[in-house]
């Protein structure tokens, strides 16, 4: 007698004894199959969505590529849609300037914070500090933007820019003809604070993968904690730390609202950190939906979105792969 026979024969008995009836084996199997497939499809949706969005953007980008070569668009420095001039370079340059300044400002303190939490802090301190740091990530972007306008922009315009001009004025990077405070630096500072909790969290996780035994092996020969960190902990986790920073950078690249509020939004190629800039996300957010009758304007803006998406996707995939290899399944 097979197992199926047993299960099926039990059914009538169960009903006789007044127990609730159970659906037949066949119907339960059908349910199981349907449930499995439905969940799979729902899980697949976000993946399909990314492919669809990328494809749709590429298609809408296409018309302008028939008029201008990709190189012309990417390297062009003049943005005058009315005259049919679509140079993306100011926006691409602006995006990278703000991101590099933001990441550059964020990385040193974030790395030190993560090192403190993982190597020096007592468990109780850590339990208090980590949630507080994570809280930074919960503040809405627009609030950071307002904070930037109210606090950072005046600080940069009134204090930092004049001071830098006086002391570091001979370096072109630190002077600007018209420093109003609305600048790459202001955007970078706001971005740095925004991505900090993220970089700290990833770096902390990466540092936590170093086994205690390895630290003790170094301490046991009389190394100090700091020597152990430099020679062992950082050496062991370098790829993960870099990947964490790159992942932070992808957040910075796409961050729109807060940056848009403090960078000035002038389509020019910036030459100094006190210059205004106009990053790609701000371009799209500010202009999409208006003046759409201009020929190719729609294609140009969606082209900007396409470029942004491709840059972020590439950064993201590479860093996630590195992190997955380091952290196993603990963190994705």
């Amino acid at each position: 007698m097979s197992l199926q026979d047993i299960v099926i024969k039990e059914q009538p008995n169960a009903q006789k004894e007044g127990r609730p009836s159970r659906p037949s084996l066949a119907s339960r199997r059908r349910q199981e199959r349907v449930a499995g497939r439905t969940l799979f499809i729902i899980t697949l949706l976000p993946v399909i969505l990314i492919v669809l969005i990328t494809a749709a953007l590429a298609m809408r980008f296409w018309p302008i590529l028939k008029e201008y070569s990709l190189w012309e668009l990417v390297s062009g420095t003049v943005w005058k849609p009315m005259q049919g001039k679509f140079g993306f370079w100011p926006f691409i340059a602006g995006t990278f300037w703000v991101t590099i300044v933001g990441v550059g400002l964020a990385v040193p303190p974030c790395l030190l914070t993560a090192l403190y939490l993982s190597e020096y802090a007592r468990a109780a301190t850590r339990a208090l500090m980590k949630p507080l740091l994570d809280l930074l990530a919960a503040i809405p972007s627009v609030v950071y933007g307002v904070w930037g306008v109210v606090a950072i922009v005046p600080f940069v315009g009134d204090t930092l820019a004049p001071w830098c001009k006086k002391t570091l004025g001979f370096i072109p990077l630190f002077t600007s003809k018209n420093p109003t405070g609305y600048s790459i630096l202001a955007g970078g500072i706001v971005l740095a604070v925004m991505i900090a909790p993220f970089i700290i969290a990833v770096t902390y996780e990466v540092l936590a993968t170093v086994s205690q035994g390895l630290r003790e092996a170094s301490l046991a020969v009389g190394a100090t904690r700091w020597q152990t960190i430099r020679a062992i902990v950082i050496r062991q986790t370098m790829p993960g730390i870099v990947a964490g920073v790159v992942l932070g950078a992808t957040r910075a690249l796409g961050e729109t609202m807060a940056v848009l509020m403090v960078v000035g939004n002038v389509p020019q190629v910036p030459k100094s950190i006190f210059d205004t800039a106009y990053p790609l996300p701000a371009l799209i957010a500010n202009n999409y939906g208006e003046m759409m009758s201009i020929p190719l304007y729609d294609a140009a803006l969606l082209g900007a979105a396409f470029m942004l998406l491709v840059i972020v996707l590439v950064f993201n995939v590479v860093s996630t792969l590195v992190l997955q290899r380091m952290l196993g399944r603990r963190w994705v």
């Binding site: 086994s211 035994g213 046991a220 009389g222």
Partner: peptide
């Protein structure tokens, strides 16, 4: 710790 070496339960090569 320099004066007192430790051999741990399992090897931890740096």
């Amino acid at each position: 710790r320099k004066c007192i070496g430790l051999l741990a339960q399992r090897p931890y090569p740096l």
